[in-house]
């Protein structure tokens, strides 16, 4: 298996940008005392939000060469990141793209348009598009249209008005939990909603991104009882380094730094659109039909879809242990004390 070649090949298909404006990059440098210096670089460039293979990307590109800077091409999912102005105490037009999950993941830019008067509007559009347009196929189109009307500045009144009710039905179509709207009672049902309220609703409704490291936490693996299953153990042993194919090593492996690194590698590769599809192909996993904006979630859903318990019974001929597997309630009983 040579993933390396496969992964590098094939660029993603990108469409017209949703938002684009002139901006330069800033470099950062850590200084003593935990301070970070932010220095604008002179290259003429632009920030753009663009869909690549139907996934939203925040990119920076050189305005002369029009080449997207590979080190500044970030996939963004609703609720992931915010683009905001930095208060320097002066008239600087410095902005930061800040990812929520990781405070260290932030990128600085400076506005290069001569006139600052459009800054606020452009940034608002960028944030709305970044946090609104879910990349899931069908329902996202619906929601995308709703949001686009906001972005294009349509007045939320008249025949095309968007109501909270309408929004709720869109969300229900997306399979988002109803409590998200219950928490926000103040707006009477048929009143126009503000873009801000929509954004709040979206953020509240979206499940937090799933961490692969949490799913395969050593305690979770122990509690699952999977390593009590002879067939599972025999199958997993094959993936250990040849001189180390022992049951003890398998028990210990989830705590090894190399295993934890592999989890991080896989998660980060899944969040890179070029790699996403090839990973599925390489590991023989069929994408699930349920849309989800979180690629890790999509991957796990697909694995569950492709490896359903009864299907495994048919496929794995020697796997007659299946019937002996402990019933589910037992798992939960086991899981409770150990995961605490």
């Amino acid at each position: 298996m040579n993933l390396q070649n496969l992964m590098g090949a094939g660029g993603g298909r990108s469409e017209e940008p949703i938002v684009r404006f002139k901006a330069g990059k800033c470099e950062t440098e850590a200084r003593s005392g935990g301070k970070v210096w932010v220095m604008p670089t002179p290259r003429r460039g632009e920030v753009q939000l663009v869909r690549v293979d139907s996934l939203m990307h925040f990119q920076w590109r050189d305005r002369t060469t029009l080449a997207v800077d590979a080190s500044c091409d970030h996939m963004v999912f609703p609720g992931d990141a915010k683009f905001e102005k930095i208060d320097t105490g002066r008239d600087d037009r410095v902005y930061v793209l800040q990812f929520r999950e990781n405070t260290a993941r932030r990128f600085f830019f400076w506005m290069q348009a001569k006139d600052a008067s459009d800054d606020d509007a452009l940034v608002a559009r960028l944030n709305a598009a970044m946090n609104g347009d879910a990349p899931a196929p069908a329902p996202a189109g619906q929601l995308g249209n709703v949001l686009r009307r906001f972005q294009e500045g349509a007045e939320p009144s008249g025949p095309g008005a968007i109501t909270l009710e309408g929004l709720q039905s869109v969300m229900q179509n997306l399979g988002m939990p109803p409590q998200a709207r219950q928490q926000r009672q103040p707006e009477p049902a048929s009143q126009p909603v503000s873009s801000e309220a929509l954004q709040r609703a979206m953020t509240g409704a979206l499940p937090p991104p799933l961490s692969l490291a949490d799913v395969l936490a050593p305690e979770a693996i122990d509690a699952s009882g999977i390593l009590e299953d002879e067939a599972a153990v025999a199958r997993l042993l094959d993936h250990l380094p040849e001189p180390q194919r022992s049951r003890d090593e398998l028990r210990a492996v989830a705590r090894r730094p190399q295993f934890r690194q592999a989890l991080a590698q896989l998660a980060s590769a899944l969040r890179t659109p070029d790699n996403f599809a090839s990973i599925f192909a390489n590991f023989g996993i069929e994408p699930s039909t349920t849309p989800t904006p979180d690629p890790v979630r999509a991957f796990l859903d697909a694995i569950m879809h492709t490896n359903q318990p009864d299907a495994a019974e048919r496929d794995d001929d020697g796997d007659d242990k299946m019937g002996d597997a402990p019933p589910k309630p037992d798992d939960d009983d086991d899981a409770a004390p150990k995961t605490d």
Binding site: V215, A217, S224, I226, D229, R235, Q265, L300, N307, P309
Partner: peptide
């Protein structure tokens, strides 16, 4: 270790255990 990680997930799914782990996470 990436193939081990993926097969861990598959084996857990085939034994109807992956959903619990995902839900817990």
């Amino acid at each position: 270790y990436v193939p081990l990680v993926v097969d861990f997930l598959k084996v857990l799914a085939a034994n109807a255990k992956l959903k619990t782990l995902v839900d817990n996470a």
